[in-house]
Design a protein around this nucleic acid. Structure first.
Lengths: 207, 207
DNA sequence: ACTCAATTTGATACCGAGTATCAGACTGTA
DNA sequence: TACAGTCTGATACTCGGTATCAAATTGAGT
């Protein structure tokens, strides 16, 4: 009620959703508050009620924004997956699938180089918290599904042939390398660049 | 003094534990009952109270045998991991790591060939139940840790050099292929042998 | 500006997994 | 037989997640 706003200080115009925008900003604030609490006291020692209270939301409503507690942390991975898939599709057609996958992952290595200590904290929490690690693998699987069609195209394989495991194998193995690299990156406190670790990991498979 | 052995109706032979054996048999019965209930009504629709009641155990005691509900299903994977690691160590030294890994996995392909429909049911449940799938990845990670030292040895890399991601990459990628193969095997209802799918997947990475 | 229907919200109650505690029963051993 | 260590079941609790429902808010049409 505070903003009756007949003077245009808050233009409530936009067919594509005023409500949607509110929802987005609330989501963003939840993520921000939750992330702060998580880094302060750890993921497990932070309850959903605490987050809801801090944001000024009821517990029930919070669960309408995020289906699970883990989703508050892993929501961003959804978007990353799309970006990687896009980057892969944008690679030149004559590039080998494995090399194209490696290059597509630069979307992530660049993100981490842009804000290393933040990325380090984030990955550390991901790897140290069992429930988060578990959900993280689920997201990884959804990434795999996003990448497979493009890998199949590059291999000249007709889409949707589940008995040909090659595209899935390439995508899954590449993601496995990404995981190994990320783990190593956290283990060495980021001293060795993620891109280097990823290069080593992925080149190890081509001998 | 375990040799009391009055009348041999219940031979209490073995210093290494009569108690241990009881524990083992109880565990086995829990697994059996739970597995039956799970396949009958699904994993999520079966409560631990139900399992406990059926076995004739208190809820609290059940959790002393299995830390989590998922462990009742995934307990056997612990053992499988060890077997794979053993098989890998038993491969000839001059074999390439990737090939050795492939052969080590035959421990599993043979198990599945021995009891296909049972394996199929088991894997289907694993893949259809989100919480099980998540925990399954955790076990996969523990497999990886079991395999890495042997892979490192075959690569001539001094053990415990976390900055060299190659052994982990090979192990993780191989396990990723195994997962892809298992998924495909379930998808085609076991019509194509797991070993074949695994061959295709793993050979795709060496071009 | 007013009304109406759809959506959102909070409160409440509920379920199931997992943990902690504690007194009593059991088991192996001296 | 007696003692000590362990296992058990009962109880109560925490926390994540779901279902329900009435009240509040909102968007849109008139």
């Amino acid at each position: 009620m505070s903003e009756t706003a007949r003077t245009a200080d808050k233009p409530p115009r936009k067919p594509p959703g005023l409500r949607e925008r509110m929802r987005a900003t609330v989501r963003a604030e939840v993520v921000e508050v939750a992330h702060r609490l998580f880094t302060e006291q750890g993921f497990d020692r932070t309850t959903v009620d605490q987050i809801a209270a801090e944001v000024g939301l009821s517990r029930a409503s919070l669960f309408r924004y995020f289906g699970t507690k883990e989703d508050i942390v892993l929501g961003r991975l959804e978007e990353s997956g799309r970006q990687i898939a896009e980057a892969l599709a944008a690679r030149p057609d004559d590039e080998q699938p494995w090399e194209a996958l490696r290059r597509a992952f630069d979307v992530l290595t660049r993100m981490n180089e842009a804000a290393p200590e933040q990325a380090l904290r984030y990955l550390r929490m991901l790897q140290e918290t069992p429930s988060l690690r578990a959900r993280h693998y689920e997201k990884q699987l959804s990434w795999q599904e996003l990448l497979v069609p493009e890998v199949a195209r590059r291999l000249g394989i007709s889409p949707d042939r589940p008995e040909d495991t090659r595209p899935s194998a390439l995508a899954a193995a590449a993601l496995a390398c990404l995981d190994v690299a990320a783990t190593g990156w956290v283990a060495c406190e980021g001293t060795v660049p993620l891109a280097v670790l990823l290069d080593r990991a992925m080149s190890a498979l081509r001998e």
